[in-house]
Design a protein around this nucleic acid. Structure first.
Lengths: 351, 351
DNA sequence: GCTGAGGATGTAAGCGTTTACAAGTTTTTG
DNA sequence: CAAAAACTTGTAAACGCTTACATCCTCAGC
């Protein structure tokens, strides 16, 4: 079928020959915006380019310019596909793509699944000579991030923050958002609030959300019994379910649950319902993320919404500015705002 | 902060100098698997590479090898974000990524949103000199697809089929799957079956599903009144809702609905419920796609499941084999299997 | 009409690799 | 032990482009 035409693609030499100019001139009409070339010659060259269907070889350009015009995005997922949140990742991807395309760059996508050797990650990052890296990783350790940012390739973390001031990131302020949410519960009269905290041992977001919880409780002079802070291995629905069951067995039960992730909240919801209690009335539940599932039946969850697309776009713009900044870039850490979405899962504390 | 070290990256020359061999030898230890180099020299070179932290410049490699080892995936979305089905696209992305990573290739991702000028699409496709292209487009016209496949870059369509035998694709067999679904309805005793057909004017999948519907009806000698075939502009929930409302107003109502897409089915479901009828009892509804939303409350939809990850992986493998095939490749068209998922939305035809 | 300035064009080097071919070294063989 | 065979290594060209520098024109100014 369709025998491939073995004609090798036209090069700049072919164009030069055909339009009777030198390759330098061809290159100039290709690259220089404000014409340094006679209009007549320019047209000749353009004509030849069209006739020969010439497309510049991008690898050659990249070699000589020492820029690939490529950005690579890394999705690091510990537990695939359990931790793969389509909507969250898609938001990031779409936000990044839009900015990247408007700058005429290319986007390479890379999934790091499981818990790969950190050195392997570092190697993978530099394997493609990309101009910059967007890193989405809930649990890459600080030192490896530092290792990345030490190289001359800018790296921006998206949706996760780092402690070190040398690491650029764009994230929401998980601490503040959590405080806001917990204050919402407190304002409803709740005093006995438990926190489904998720993987606080290795995920910064989880740590921060718990911190926000503690801050708000302390600020309002509320004490938190030890067993009201419930970590779990992941942000997984059955974690929320299991832990909620345990909470319901306590003699002194909480009247409200702050779940640091919507999946945990949904699990908790199921456990509460199963126990014959009504969410939002007998027990209030709040979540975090506003994934699509929590706004449709049977759920109607009060939660925190982050604009992932916007956040990702901001991160990408930051990355691009760092790439363009000629004499080394300065790490930059940005927080995007969040929104408290109130639905029927939170209500006044029962008397 | 972190002043960038301006040391330029080490080249193969630096390594050669340091290990006191020629660049050719360095290149050999880099590339040849079955050692053509003395073990002693090899170790020397490896040592120098490590000390200098040398990483081969991939642009140079690409230039000389005339291969980028890059594959580009195009998501063509007419109506963004309405037509952007996260799960469907993610399935494709994940399937492709897995195969690509296992082959040590890179994946560029590109969104074509709106209805871009077809010529622009063609240009975009060839702009990055990638080795192959995965194309996801519901509505790119045949002639432009042909234009793409005419170039020496292999293109494989994913999840959509083409008529021309010159265009490679991997898809499910929409016609057969539809037949299977409609026969399921017929076996339940339904005779008056309407089809929410979606955008049959410009989307091949929609055309095919309608064809499957017609085939099955004809095969069982059932006639289809003209107004039982209901096209719409898109596979959008409110299309299903609106059209279902109209169907419910007919004097001769259908007892079953075959919606060619889950979104249409969900919309129809809402309309039916709103009219005080019970889905699966008073009216049966079947969908297509098995998106996550149709398996949780309030929906429980009989539908067709396609394994998008598997399909995409198959497409990627096909693409890679075409890339590797030395003397031109042969277009190949593959159909992956589907599954009929029966839930409570379909039941026996009412008497 | 000549000089010189400034703009248009050409020449050639260089970007960092791979690889054909040549040259040199070691091993095998009779 | 010499010649042939088999390895190992080095030299240099090539991939297709950008760009510094050199050269050549054109035309203004006198």
């Amino acid at each position: 079928m369709t025998p491939k035409k073995p004609t090798p693609p036209a090069t700049i030499y072919d164009v030069a020959r055909k339009s009777k100019v030198s390759i330098a001139t061809v290159s100039r009409v290709l690259n220089k915006k404000n014409s340094v070339v006679t209009e007549k010659t320019r047209l000749q060259v353009l004509e030849a380019i069209k006739e020969l269907n010439f497309k510049p070889n991008i690898s050659a350009r990249r070699l000589v310019s020492n820029r690939t015009n490529l950005i690579e995005i890394f999705f690091h997922i510990n537990n695939f596909p359990v931790n793969f949140k389509s909507d969250w990742y898609n938001g990031i991807l779409v936000g990044a793509t839009q900015v990247i395309q408007s700058h005429n760059l290319g986007l390479l996508i890379n999934f790091l699944v499981g818990i790969p050797d950190p050195q392997e990650i570092v190697d993978r990052v530099f394997q493609n000579n990309v101009d910059g890296v967007l890193m989405i990783s809930p649990s890459l350790e600080e030192k490896h991030l530092l290792e990345l940012s030490r190289q001359s390739t800018p790296v921006v973390m998206v949706g996760h923050r780092a402690q070190s001031p040398d690491i650029s990131f764009v994230d929401t302020n998980n601490i503040e958002a959590s405080e806001m949410m917990v204050e919402h519960l407190i304002n409803l009269g709740h005093k006995k609030i438990a926190c489904l905290a998720g993987p606080i041992h290795n995920v910064q977001n989880a740590k921060d959300r718990l911190e926000g919880f503690k801050n708000a409780m302390a600020k309002h002079g509320l004490s938190v019994p030890k067993n009201f802070i419930v970590p779990s291995d992941g942000f997984i629905k059955h974690n929320g379910y299991d832990e909620m069951k345990k909470l319901l067995k306590l003699s002194e039960k909480p009247t409200a649950i702050y779940a640091c992730d919507d999946m945990l909240a949904m699990g908790a919801w199921d456990a509460v319902t199963e126990a014959g209690l009504k969410v939002g009335k007998d027990i209030s539940i709040a979540g975090y993320d506003d994934i699509p599932a929590v706004s449709v039946a049977p759920y109607s969850l009060t939660t925190i919404r982050q604009d992932m697309e916007g956040l990702s776009a901001a991160a990408t713009r930051l990355l691009i500015s760092q790439i363009k900044s000629p004499e080394g870039f300065v790490p930059s850490q940005q927080y995007e705002s969040t929104k408290l979405i109130v639905r029927s899962s939170t209500g006044p504390a029962p008397k």
